[in-house]
Amino acid sequence: MKIGAFEELVLLAVGALTDNAYGVSIKELLREKTGKNPSIGALHSALYRLEEKGCLISSEGGATAERGGRRKKYYTLTTRGRNVLIETSKLRLEFSKNIQGLNLRWDGL
């Protein structure tokens, strides 16, 4: 399973937001964490791809007034998505061990 760097970020954000991961909130979180404002098109495009790949599943939520009565689509990580995240993190950790001065740790390992 190959996912891109931006997809990985999106996946992380969805995981972080747990029950409240939908378009706007994901965008907010990413901006907060990365300091860069992701484009909404790129975000949805990534969400769509991740869903296709089976890393995310979506469910429809309630409509709100500020959305003009349109329902939100909430995303949740699948097991597969979770595994993908573990795998990429592992990879980074492996590499970082061999780089002097880097001392990354991951408690889960």
Partner: peptide, 16 residues
């Protein structure tokens, strides 16, 4: 199939 979510997000962002 994607319209509702997308449009909803855009409208929400617009409001903000």
């Amino acid at each position: 199939r994607v319209l509702e979510t997308l449009q909803g997000d855009l409208h929400e962002l617009y409001g903000q």
